[in-house]
Design a protein around this nucleic acid. Structure first.
Lengths: 123, 123
DNA sequence: AATTAAACTTGCAAAATGCAAGTTTAACTT
DNA sequence: AAGTTAAACTTGCATTTTGCAAGTTTAATT
């Protein structure tokens, strides 16, 4: 018996910012999008191996939700699924970029990693 | 006895996107920032009255955390605090704008509300 | 058919959130 | 200056989400 991933998609308000946060405003979704956009990752195991150490149940849950929400799709069999962003998902790119710009300016991240990220993101 | 708002600020990785998500990647922080940036709200009760119905304990927790993280500050007494964004907090503006653009394109939000948001955000 | 490894599930502990009270505190009123 | 008001904040407990450490299923490969 599969658990339904979300019974009622609770929309907190009509504000477009709030709506977008209802879609991707959790700890993990945008990191999966980042993996797809910038790190060339396309499969379950590749997402799993990312530095932030997402756990398997959460990863599965997010992949289902992101698919349901039309941000990603996959091809291939259930043994090897290849995920990619939909058109709608690609529209998240400016958000990721703005987040990266902020992070590069204010974080924390080590210099070497930053050089790598900037190169990958063409910033 | 006050509860400490966050014992260890867990940083999941050195990725600037991940770092930024560790700061504001929760259900509520960016909505408070939105209130400050676009809706002219500056006080506890004004944040409370936003459409998404944040509860008082969460609002208090987020205001403390955002202050600790240097994204907002306040003036005034403990009876009437006036919050505003720091320079660092203002650097979140491009993120909010990108989120709004996505939300406006893809949501959900009703037409009237959208007109209002676009006007306020000067989009 | 047996093996392998990717994809997915399960069960339970820990943390975050939601809700409905309450209390504290400073300003405003007599 | 005592009493009232309302904004800011706390508390306790239920619910939900996340984290972790197993497991199982499934389709390619041998």
């Amino acid at each position: 018996m599969k658990k339904e991933s979300k019974e009622t998609i609770e929309k907190r308000s009509d504000c477009p910012i709030s709506c977008t946060m209802d879609l991707v405003g959790d700890k993990w979704s945008l990191l999966i999008i980042r993996d797809l956009l910038y790190l060339g990752k396309t499969s379950y195991n590749e997402f799993l191996s990312s530095g932030e150490k997402i756990s398997t149940n959460i990863l599965n849950d997010r992949l289902v939700k992101l698919t349901e929400d039309g941000l990603i799709t996959y091809t291939g069999t259930s043994k090897r699924k290849i995920y990619k962003l939909t058109k709608k998902g690609l529209d998240l790119k400016p958000i990721l970029e703005a987040i990266a710009v902020f992070g590069i300016k204010h974080s924390c991240a080590n210099k070497e990693f930053l050089r790598h990220v900037k190169k990958v993101m063409e910033l």
